[in-house]
Design a protein around this nucleic acid. Structure first.
Lengths: 342, 342
DNA sequence: GTGAAAGCGCTAACAT
DNA sequence: ATGTTAGCGCTTTCAC
């Protein structure tokens, strides 16, 4: 009644266990006739090698961890989906870890990861500092997505957020906006810092006036953006365009504009940032950036798989470009979209 | 340089491997002094038992699979988060499988699950038929979330969707609506069929006129609902209230109303169904049901853990009630909310 | 209270 | 071409 082992197959086929193993893993090395008998026995018993035993022998479990701040976030989920698919295609399982945006939790995961049945780990953007992944990258194949760490220490996949933010600024500026504000979450990540740098750089290069209170850091939530937008609308010299740090946050920002009796884009232009699903159904549909979430997950998985095969090669950083998606939330010069071909 | 084993610890502590194992797993059975020496050696080497070896011995891997149609869906993600947290709290890992809403894929997962390093599996709602989980429930602890299968075959966690739909109907009726339509995805799941049954039952009991074309099945997407709403608005005797199958779909439906030059709730009342995050920021904020996603994931995990401990107990089905969340998308009789206490 | 040794299921080196 | 056997790292009898 219990699961058949290689011994059972050997007995039924009247060969040694070694032959069974070979018939399965190295078919050429066993005589055609023997192989046939073995495979029949395998079939009859419904035998499948025990992955745990294989793992013990080979020291490979064929599983990869993915650590996300919050699987509930559409962006993270999409990255996870990309990683999962790539891993599954290569016979690897995906072990999920949700850190609930808690840095301590991530540190904890780093510790237990070494005593967990995984061959590698993908760390997806957290809003805090980067956990101590360098220590574990000796034992595990590690890849970071949108984290910050010195280039050559560990494999990385990054989105070019600085350029992305400038793309949005450029778009708004072309539409005639001179007073562009930026709503973001807490600026603890260098990713956010890169966005802010991109913002400042653009303001300067375009010869616009930089105003400190046009950059607002609240929470990484719809409500955070709601509050931030309220604040912005209350300022004296209020902006005519606002870039919101994520699409989800933008939903809150749009809501704040409405509650103030104003309209988007007539009174104020609004953009999102990461092309979260649903943006085309917002009111109004949201101009945003095409954030290659799925692809980033996929590439991270591929980097891990590659490192598992070739542990020695130098660490790589891949930086992906962001493209603009023009919808109605900034007004109607849709023709601009065509100019953004790189 | 490589990971220390129990042998290394034994050598350093000058005891046998058995003693090391006992000092760690069964401290009382070893003399205080010996134990101290062993633990010091463990500490010095930074030893941690290899989970793979433990798994081979114990025939338990301490991992549970969770199979979702689409991790990108906020509802599924929330369930996954609930399951993950419960599992993590009990020292179990969560192995994620994404089926991309593909029934064949689910069948495939059922097959490989037995040869995968997991002790159990949670199957979350798919929009197709239920995969053949009965076969595997001998080898694995299995729990279904919002799937349909005879009660006593396997552990289940369900939402009372029939009652939920009636709650929405009742709410709309109280607000004065007699022409209530229902937009759903393809009615392949019995979950959907239960909703439809709830709808019909209410219409009958309330003495309203049942109209076949007030039930529209499209796709389970924002666009599906967009199209369905367009169709509804084009009918002759058009409804004054519409219940949409999911909140995400409702976003599409709201968009369709706007595109037709009408307003919610002035011209037509709209509800969602599953309390997806963001609904309070829709335009207008969406009346919907509190769907206990997190809790369902948690309960499913708990059921699995429980079955692993007590394999013999009878299979259980847990059905959770749905509560209404009243926002602005159906008009302003907010006082109704208070009447819904069960 | 502790040690020696068997064995979980598999693969690979060695022997025939 | 096939069989025998050691060993992956651990836990758990069974002896002492």
């Amino acid at each position: 009644m219990k699961r058949p082992t290689i011994k059972d197959v050997a007995k039924l086929a009247k060969v040694s266990v070694a032959t069974v193993s070979r018939a399965l893993n190295d078919p050429e090395t066993v005589k055609e006739e023997t192989r046939k008998i073995v495979l029949e026995a395998v079939d009859e018993l419904g035998y499948d090698p025990d992955p745990v035993a294989q793992a013990l022998r080979s020291n490979k479990v064929k599983s990869i961890a993915i650590i996300v701040p919050n699987i509930t976030n559409a962006i993270m989920a999409e990255m996870t989906r990309g990683a999962h698919e790539e891993l599954a295609d290569n016979g690897y399982n995906t072990v999920l870890f949700n850190s609930d945006d808690d840095f301590q939790q991530e540190v904890h995961y780093c510790q237990i990861l070494q005593n967990t049945m995984v061959d590698g780990a993908i760390f997806v953007t957290g809003s805090g500092e980067t956990p101590p992944v360098e220590n574990i990258s000796n034992d595990l194949a590690v890849c970071l997505i949108n984290r910050e760490i010195e280039d050559d220490k560990v494999d990385q996949v990054l989105a070019d957020e600085k350029e992305g933010l400038q793309l949005l600024c450029y778009h708004l500026h072309k539409l005639g906006h001179d007073k562009i504000a930026f709503i973001t979450g807490l600026a603890t990540t260098t990713a956010t810092q890169r966005k802010i740098a991109g913002y400042k750089e653009f303001i300067e290069e375009a010869g616009l006036k930089f105003k400190e209170n046009y950059i607002i850091s609240g929470h990484w939530t719809m409500n955070g953006a709601y509050m931030a937008m309220k604040e912005l609308l209350g300022t004296e010299d209020k902006p005519t365009a606002v870039i919101v740090g994520t699409d989800t946050m933008a939903l809150g920002a749009l809501s704040a504009v409405r509650d103030n009796g104003l309209s988007v884009p007539e009174d104020i232009a609004v953009t999102g940032f990461d092309n979260a699903p649903g943006g085309e159904y917002y009111h109004p549909p949201l101009t945003t950036l095409k954030y290659p979430n799925y692809e980033m997950g996929q590439l991270a998985a591929r980097a891990i798989l590659n490192r598992l095969k070739n542990p020695q090669i130098a660490k790589k950083s891949i930086k992906l470009p962001l493209d603009i998606t023009v919808r109605k939330s900034c007004g109607f010069r849709l023709d601009f979209a065509g100019k953004n071909n790189r």
